[in-house]
Deep mutational scan, measured.
Amino acid sequence: GPIITTQVTIPKDLAGSIIGKGGQRIKQIRHESGASIKIDEPLEGSEDRIITITGTQDQIQNAQYLLQNSVKQY
């Protein structure tokens, strides 16, 4: 399918649970989903961080599912 980009906003407090120790968790999510995932640095004074996910519809759905699971375990 076509490559698309979607953005998800997360509270910055949850960023740690998604990134994992030394970036292990986010690497695993990238690997498992096949999507490209970029977590922006939090904006000055903002409570949120923006996650940019790029890939096919399937890859993005996979990545979103894995991201949600990471947050739930936290």
Score class of each variant (00 low, 15 high):
1 G>N: 13
1 G>D: 13
1 G>S: 02
2 P>C: 05
2 P>F: 08
3 I>T: 15
3 I>K: 06
3 I>F: 04
3 I>A: 14
3 I>N: 12
3 I>H: 06
3 I>C: 05
4 I>G: 01
4 I>K: 02
4 I>E: 02
4 I>V: 05
5 T>H: 04
5 T>E: 01
5 T>F: 03
5 T>N: 15
6 T>G: 01
6 T>M: 08
6 T>S: 06
6 T>Y: 01
7 Q>V: 03
7 Q>A: 05
7 Q>Y: 11
7 Q>I: 02
7 Q>E: 14
7 Q>D: 02
7 Q>R: 10
8 V>N: 03
8 V>W: 03
8 V>E: 14
8 V>I: 07
9 T>E: 12
9 T>G: 09
9 T>P: 08
10 I>T: 03
10 I>H: 01
11 P>G: 07
11 P>E: 12
11 P>C: 08
11 P>S: 09
11 P>Y: 02
11 P>V: 03
11 P>M: 04
12 K>D: 08
12 K>R: 11
12 K>H: 12
13 D>T: 10
13 D>P: 14
13 D>C: 10
13 D>Y: 08
13 D>S: 10
13 D>V: 05
14 L>G: 12
14 L>E: 11
15 A>F: 09
15 A>D: 06
16 G>I: 15
16 G>Y: 04
16 G>H: 08
17 S>W: 03
17 S>Y: 03
17 S>M: 11
17 S>I: 07
17 S>D: 05
18 I>R: 03
18 I>G: 04
18 I>H: 07
18 I>V: 12
18 I>D: 03
19 I>E: 04
19 I>L: 10
19 I>P: 11
19 I>M: 13
19 I>Q: 05
20 G>Y: 12
20 G>M: 15
20 G>W: 05
20 G>D: 14
20 G>R: 07
21 K>S: 13
21 K>H: 07
21 K>F: 07
21 K>L: 12
21 K>N: 15
21 K>P: 07
21 K>Q: 14
22 G>H: 08
23 G>N: 13
23 G>L: 12
23 G>Q: 06
23 G>Y: 13
23 G>A: 13
24 Q>M: 10
24 Q>N: 14
24 Q>W: 13
24 Q>C: 04
24 Q>F: 11
24 Q>A: 12
24 Q>E: 09
25 R>Q: 12
25 R>K: 10
25 R>W: 11
26 I>F: 13
26 I>A: 06
26 I>V: 05
26 I>R: 07
26 I>K: 04
26 I>D: 08
26 I>L: 14
27 K>S: 08
27 K>T: 08
27 K>W: 05
28 Q>G: 12
28 Q>L: 05
28 Q>I: 08
28 Q>C: 12
28 Q>E: 13
28 Q>P: 03
28 Q>T: 11
28 Q>F: 14
29 I>P: 01
30 R>S: 13
31 H>F: 04
31 H>T: 12
31 H>I: 07
32 E>V: 02
32 E>W: 02
33 S>K: 00
33 S>N: 01
33 S>Q: 01
33 S>V: 03
33 S>A: 06
34 G>H: 07
34 G>V: 01
34 G>I: 00
35 A>E: 00
35 A>Y: 01
35 A>H: 00
36 S>C: 06
36 S>T: 14
36 S>Q: 10
37 I>E: 00
38 K>R: 11
38 K>N: 04
38 K>L: 09
39 I>P: 05
39 I>M: 15
39 I>F: 13
39 I>N: 04
40 D>L: 08
40 D>V: 06
40 D>G: 09
41 E>C: 05
41 E>N: 10
41 E>K: 10
41 E>V: 07
42 P>E: 08
42 P>V: 06
42 P>D: 06
42 P>L: 08
43 L>E: 11
43 L>R: 07
43 L>A: 11
44 E>L: 06
44 E>V: 08
44 E>R: 10
44 E>H: 14
44 E>Y: 03
44 E>N: 15
44 E>D: 04
45 G>R: 07
45 G>P: 09
45 G>C: 03
46 S>C: 07
46 S>W: 02
46 S>M: 07
46 S>D: 14
47 E>V: 08
47 E>L: 07
47 E>P: 03
47 E>H: 04
47 E>G: 10
47 E>Q: 05
48 D>Q: 10
48 D>I: 03
49 R>M: 11
49 R>L: 13
49 R>F: 03
49 R>G: 07
49 R>Q: 10
49 R>D: 06
50 I>S: 13
50 I>H: 13
50 I>D: 04
52 T>K: 12
52 T>I: 13
52 T>G: 04
53 I>Q: 00
53 I>L: 09
54 T>H: 09
54 T>C: 06
55 G>D: 00
55 G>C: 00
55 G>T: 00
55 G>V: 00
55 G>L: 00
55 G>S: 00
56 T>K: 07
56 T>A: 09
57 Q>S: 09
57 Q>I: 02
57 Q>K: 11
57 Q>D: 08
57 Q>P: 06
58 D>W: 04
58 D>V: 09
58 D>I: 06
58 D>S: 09
58 D>K: 05
59 Q>I: 03
59 Q>R: 08
59 Q>A: 09
59 Q>E: 13
59 Q>C: 12
60 I>F: 01
60 I>E: 02
61 Q>I: 03
61 Q>T: 14
61 Q>K: 08
61 Q>G: 09
61 Q>E: 13
61 Q>D: 15
61 Q>C: 09
62 N>Q: 07
62 N>P: 03
62 N>L: 09
62 N>Y: 03
63 A>Y: 02
63 A>R: 00
63 A>I: 02
64 Q>L: 01
65 Y>I: 13
65 Y>E: 15
65 Y>D: 15
65 Y>T: 14
66 L>R: 08
66 L>S: 05
66 L>N: 02
66 L>T: 10
66 L>G: 04
68 Q>E: 13
68 Q>F: 07
68 Q>L: 04
69 N>L: 07
69 N>H: 07
69 N>M: 06
70 S>F: 07
70 S>L: 14
70 S>V: 06
70 S>W: 15
71 V>N: 13
71 V>D: 14
71 V>G: 11
72 K>Y: 07
72 K>E: 15
72 K>T: 13
73 Q>V: 12
73 Q>L: 06
73 Q>F: 12
73 Q>P: 15
73 Q>C: 14
73 Q>A: 07
73 Q>R: 10
74 Y>S: 15
74 Y>N: 11
74 Y>A: 15
74 Y>W: 05
